[in-house]
Each structure stands twice: as C-alpha cells, then as structure tokens.
Amino acid sequence: MKPAPALAEGFPDLSGMQIAREPHWFRWVSAALIVLVLAAIARAFANGQIEWSYVSRFLTAKVILEGIVNTMVMAVLAMALGIFLGIVVAVMRLSPNPVLKTVAAGYTWLFRGTPLILQLLLWFNLALVFPTIGIPGLWSARAVDVMTPFLAALLGLGINQGAYTSEVMRAGMLSVDIGQYEAAQAIGMGRLRALRRIVLPQAMRVVIPPLGNEFIGMVKATSLASVIQYPELLHNAENIYYANSRVIELLIVAGLWYLLVVSILTPLQMLLERRFARGTLQFAR
C-alpha cells in the first residue's frame, strides 16, 4: 500500500488553544445607559404625586380581585365563543357552497369593519331597538332584563373575536397540504370528518401562536366592557378612584394585574404548542 502523502508545512496545530473572550465594550456601555434611564424614571415616579401605600393597599382589595376574576371569566368565555365562531366561519368560507361563502365573508366584513366599543354599546342598548325579544308564541322577555352587561359584553367581544379568529383559522387550514385532504378522501372520509380528524389537528399547530396573541388581546379588550358597566378589573378600579380620587394609583394597580395575567399566559401557550406538535421532529418521542 502506498503511504499517505506528508502534510504541507506552515499550518501549525491549533488544537490546544482556547478562543479568547471579547470585551464587548459597547454592550456594557449601552446596558449601563439603560439602567441609568430606568433609575431616573423610577426616581421620578417615587418622588412624584403618587401615594405608593395606596397601590399596595388596593392591589389585593376585594373589589379589585373580583374585577380580575370577572376579567378572566369574560376573556375565557368570549374567546371560546370567538374560536367556535371562527372555526365555523372559516369552514364556511372554504366550502364550495356560494351561499355559505358569502354569509361567512359578510360576517367577517361587518364585525371587523366597525369598532369593538361601538359593537359593545349596540349590544348593550339593544333594548332601544327591540323592547321585547323572544320566539313568538313560545317565550318572550324584556330586552333590558335579558341584555345584562355580562351578556352584552360576551356577545360583543365573542362575536367580534370570531371575525378575527376565522381568518386565523382559515390561514391554518390553508397551511395544511392539499395531499392531506386527498389522503383523507381516499380512505372514504367526507369533507367535515376530514376537517375534524385530519386538517384541524394539523392546522392547530400553526394557529396557536396567533391565537395566543389574540387571547392576550382579548384579556385587555375586556377593559372596553367597562363602558357598559360590566364589573371587570378596569371598571372596578375606576369605581374606586371615583370615590377616593387616587386615579393614578388605581390605574397602576390595574396595570400590574394585567401584566401579571399576561405573563402567566405566555408559558401556558408553550405547553399547548407542545401538545399539538405531535409528530413533528423536534417533539417526537
């Protein structure tokens, strides 16, 4: 056997050497500047006209805690309604039936095209249009009794959310390869069963990050329901400062709670993403 040719001279062995740490001067300077600016802001607030004792006292006040519970209840229910409507409308939008398609497009157009706060006010004041509502001959009631702040907020937020969610869902369904529909059809599945068993589970993976976004938006959008007397967090904070005039203190209380809730939601989203990533390489068993 021929011996291997000798290696050329002039290329020393570097295997024992370590890579030196760079000083990164710019990072240190910029970080120091940011800390300085934050400290200045903190100092300004500490010396400003804010009674921090009020903040800490009202942070766990019963009315505020009730407000945060109502906010979460409303956010979850309205989002559930929104997702349900979103799936139904997205399926209608992708159906071959022109009637269903048009109805779906019209719904999205109407509820995405008007401000949410206006929709909330319309639902809440429905009694001005229809004093009594019901099914003729079966059941009827006065609209003012039925359209409570809770129901008006739920309908307003949920139906508005459905219009946005339908587009998220549609994007998710379109992201699933056409071959998946065909494979489902080839084993005898109808359109709806293929959607439920094959397409939607795959669409969920794509849809969860934007839906998480939408849900975080929803948590904060519930604050709009304060204008129709729904006792959520901001509404209750406002009620307190109407009485004691500690406006900024109570707004800070509400703000801290919103931040806390949103901070908890982010890791929850990660868990959901894992659940629906079954079969993709990075999470496969």
Binding site: Q180, A183, Q185, I187, G188, Q202, G279
Partner: peptide
Amino acid sequence: GRQRLKTGMVFQRFNLFPH
C-alpha cells in the same frame, strides 16, 4: 365516499397523516 372505499390510493408524496 362509499364508492371510494372500493379503491385504495397510494400517492407519490405518501400523504401520511403526520400527527
């Protein structure tokens, strides 16, 4: 759908359900 059950189809790109 009922008629399709009499045939089995194998696709160029497999189209297995990834989940």
